[in-house]
Structures are given as structure tokens and as C-alpha cells.
Amino acid sequence: MKWLAANWQQLPGLVGDHLELCIPAILLSILIAVPIGWLAHRHRLVGAPLLGAASLLYAVPALPLLVIIPLIFGTPLRSPATMIVALTLYGVALLVRTAADAFAAVDAQARQAAIAVGYSGRTLFWRVDLPLATPVLVSGTRVMTVSTVSLVTLGALIGESGLGVLLTDGFQRGIAAEVAAGIIATVVVALVLDGVVIAAGRALTPWTWPRRQGRGRP
């Protein structure tokens, strides 16, 4: 607790650094994984290998990945960009399968009815497939978000600032309170972002809210 009293002012800055790495990665993961998931669902032949490759990607250990990314993407070895690319790759790997499942879970009868009344192509995707896939996409995004927040701590190993710094520094100097503070702060950030995803999901899917008969739309 003595450590916390002396160093608490560091926390807001570290949390800020942490968010700067994980929020872009989370958003990019959604933007990339959802179209791939849709493609995998619509075209099984392309889909199966695509989903397999994504799962393999998740099995690549983090440290080698952080070394390979600069070679492939041309980002500097120690940079937020490298970290964000790595987090995005893991996020996509985690989310694509759920995204494919989300589109598969769209009620076939509702979809058929939509086609029968004249939805097609882009309108069918934006106004029918995507909204109806959203509840499952949201649950996948929650898992991916929490995973990304905890993965950001690895950034400390390549010198990227974030809550991971408390873990590496605390371990090296043997300050248990610092390590504990790092863990607790990471968990709190994860819970808060999870809450944000839940709230966004609710806002996007008003038809899933339970509400009493007779009450008007808010």
C-alpha cells in the first residue's frame, strides 16, 4: 500500500496508454473480422480454410509475432503500430469464427422473407443480415475485448507503455503491491470496456430488450 500511496499518480497515464493500444486494435478487429466471417459463412469453400487459418494464427506465440510483424508490415520494432497490428491479428483470430456463427444464426425464415419482399445485395446485408447477426457478434466482441485488454500488458516486453509496465517493473524490483496494482487495474479496464460493449450492443439491438406490453418505444 506504501507503493500505491507514493505512485498512484502514474496510474491514469498508464491506463491512458493502455487504452490507446487496445481501443484501435478492438475496433480494427471488428472491422476486419466481421466481413471475413460473413464471407466464410456465405462461401463455405473459402470459409473453412479461412477459419482454420484464423485459429492457427491465434496459436502463434506473442513474442515471435512481435518480431515478425515489423518484417512483414514494415512497422518499427518498438512502436505502438507493431503492438496494434499484433493485437488486431489476435482479435481477428478470436472473432472470425464467432462472426461466421453469428451470420449462420440469422433466422433463415426471416432472411427468406426479406428476399421475397425484395431485399437484395447490399440492402440485405446492411438491413437484415448484419442487424440480425449483431447479438452474437456482440458476445464475440466481449470475449475479444477482454482478451485484448489483457494482451496489451505484453507490450511492456517490447517497451510499450501500458499497465503491463507495472507487472514487469514490479517483478524485476520485487514489489508485490505494484504487480497487484497492475493486475487489478487491468481487470478493471477490461470490465469497464466490457460494459461499454454491452451498452453499445443494447443500443444496437433494441428489439431484444424485454419490455412490458403496451409500453411505447423510448
Binding site: Q109, A110, A113, P131, L132, W207, R217
Partner: peptide
Amino acid sequence: GYVMQQGGLLPHRT
């Protein structure tokens, strides 16, 4: 006009 079983309504639209 097309009407199907259970109305075939879009569950996410009012």
C-alpha cells in the same frame, strides 16, 4: 405481395 407462415416479419423492425 408475399405472405408466408408466421408472417415472415423482420424481428428487428417495428
